[in-house]
Write a protein that binds this DNA or RNA. Sequence first.
RNA 1: GCCUUGGUAGCUCAGCUGGAUAGAGCACUCGCCUCCUAAGCGAGGGGUCGUAGGUUCAAAUCCUGCCCAGGGCGCCA
Length: 582
Amino acid sequence: MKDQLQDLIKKCIQDLISKGILIEMPPNVRLDHTKDNSHGDYATNIALMLSKQAKMKPVDLAKIIVDQLEESSFINKIEIAGPGFINFFISDESSSSVVSEIIDQGALYGSSEIGQGKKVLLEYVSANPTGPLHVGHGRGAAYGATISNLLRAVGFKVDNEYYVNDAGRQMDILAVSIYLRYLSLCGENLRFPDNGYQGQYIKDIAQVIYDTSGEEFYKKLDLIFANVSKDGSEGGDKESHIDGLIENSKSILGDSFRAIFQVGIESILGGIKSDLSEFGVVFEKWFSEQSLIDTGLSESCISKLKESQKVYEKDGALWFKTTNYGDEKDRVVVRDNGNHTYFASDIAYHFDKFERGYDKIINVWGADHHGYISRVKASIDALGHSPDKLEILLVQFANLYRGGSKVQMSTRSGSFVTLEDLRKEVGNDAARFFYILRKSEQHMDFDLDLAKSKTNENPVYYIQYAHARICSVFRQANEKEMEVDHSQANLSLLTEGIEKNIIKELSRYKSVLESSAIQYEPHQLAYYLRDLSTHFHSYYNACKFIVEDKHLTQARLSLIHATRQILINGLSILGVSAPESM
RNA sequence: GCCUUGGUAGCUCAGCUGGAUAGAGCACUCGCCUCCUAAGCGAGGGGUCGUAGGUUCAAAUCCUGCCCAGGGCGCCA
C-alpha cells in the first residue's frame, strides 16, 4: 500500500519535471504514516521540500502535485493541509486488506528482500573467557542476537560469530589462578595474588582438577614463589608479582601448565556457551584467537605490513603507522619482548574476516572500545581491503542498580552479577526485552529490583498479556464450538474507530521492521509492539469480540488473529516468548 | 587537553535522515470487573526539549560556543 502510493508520487514528480515545473527528483520522497487520524493515513511533505526549486508557495505546489497525481481506486480523499502537507486517506477496503495479508502469510509476514541475500558477518559478545558472562555482556548478547534476527527478517544472510580471546597474558593469569587454588586444595597455605581471578568459579575448576587428578600436579610452594617480587598490597608491584608466578609455574609444570589451562578454558567457555544458548543466543562460529597464531596468519599479516612499509621499528618494538589514517598516534603491534599485542591479533582476525568474502562485516563492541575503531579500519585498508564494509556498533555498558544504589563490578575481584543470575531472577524474556528497550549507544540504568518485579512495571508482560488475552478469546470461541474461518471474514464490518486504529497500526509493521533492521535499532520494534498492544487492550475493553452477529464476530476474530500474528512475529525477532496464557 | 555519548514531565526513556497542538511507562488524582484473564481500560494534573547564538517558510531535531554528566585516550587484554 505504502509502496504503491510512493510510486504514484514519484511518477507524479517525474511528470512535473518533464513539464518543466520542477527541476529534479529529491533524494528522498518521504511518505509517513500519520500520527493524527485527522491527517489521513499517509502524509508527505514533498511540496514543502520542493517549493524552493519550483519557486512557488508550498501550498500552491501541493495543489499542482495533487492535480497531477493519477487517479487511484485505493485513495478515498486527498487533502492539502497546514503549511503544505499532502494527506492521503485510504479507502477502508484497501486498508483492511492488510489483515488478510497477515493471516495468509502467517509467520512469514513482515519479511522482505531488501537485504538481497547479502552475506553479513556479525560478531558480538566476544567476552574474554576468564570467567562467566556478567550483566554487561548480556546487553551485547541481546542486542547482537536481535540485530541478527532483524537482518535475517529483511533478507540478509547472517553468520553469528564469537571471537574467543584464548591467547595472551590474561590466559596465563587464569591458569595460575586455578593452579594456586589447586595447591590450596592440596593442603598448602598460600597467599593468593592481588591480580589473580578471585571468583568462586576458579575454586570450582581447581576442585575438578583435584578430584580427577589428585595431587598429580602438586609442586612445592617455595618453587612456585621462588624469586617472585612482592605483591601490590605488600608494597610491591602486582603486575610483576603475578608475572613471576606465571614464569615459575610454566617452567616448573611444563606441559601440565597447558593442561591446567585447557581444563580452565574449556570449563569457562562451556559455561558461556550454555549460558548464551539458554538466553536464545546462538553462534555459528567460535573463532579462536590462538588459531590465528597457530596457522601463522598473525605472522603473515605482519610480514605483509612490513613489505608494504606500513610498520616501522622504534625502541625495539614494531609500530603501525595509524597516524596515516587519522589516528592520533601510532600503535604498537609487536612489543619489545617479542610478544604480539592485542592489536596484532585484531589485524589478523579482521583480515581473515574480509578474506572470507562477506558483503558486510558488523562488530558489536562495548563503547569503551571506540578508540580502536580508527586503528582497526587503518589495518584493513593497509592490507588492501575496504574499511567501508566494516560497521562497528557500540553498546554502552549498563549500570546496575540494586536497592537504589549502584552495584560495583569487577571481573578480577569476582564481585559481579552474572548473566545467569540475572536470567534466573528476571527470566529470559524480561532480560532480553529490557536490554534492547534502550538505544544501544545510550547509557542504561538497569534497575535489578524493577527488572525482577513480576508486576506491570515490566513492559514485556504488557505485550505478552495482549497475546495471552487473544489466545484466551480463541479458547472461548472454541468452547462455544464456533466455526472460525478467516477466509470468510467480511472486514468491512470493522467500522469502530478503535478497529480502524488497529488496522492502521498493523499496516505499520513492515516499515517498522525494515527501519529497525537497517538502523540497527531493535528498540523501534519493541516500542511498536507495545503500541500495538496498547491499541489491542483498548479494543478489548471497548468491544466484545464474540457477539450475537456471527459475521461481526468473524471479522473481529480475524482482526485480533492478525494482531496476534504480528505480536508473535515481532516478539520472536526480539527473542521473547509469546505465552498462550499468563 | 583530545576523542566520544548524552542532558526532553518528579523518575526511566522514546521522538532527532528538520515539519502540522512535544510522547510513553512508572509515580500522583479520579473513575471502570453480575460481561472474552483488572499483569487491563478511561479521564486528569505535570515541560523555558541543559544554555546562548546561527541556518530555515519551519529547529527537541542541523551548525557553533558555553555549562553539566558518563565512557575512552598503554609496548593491558
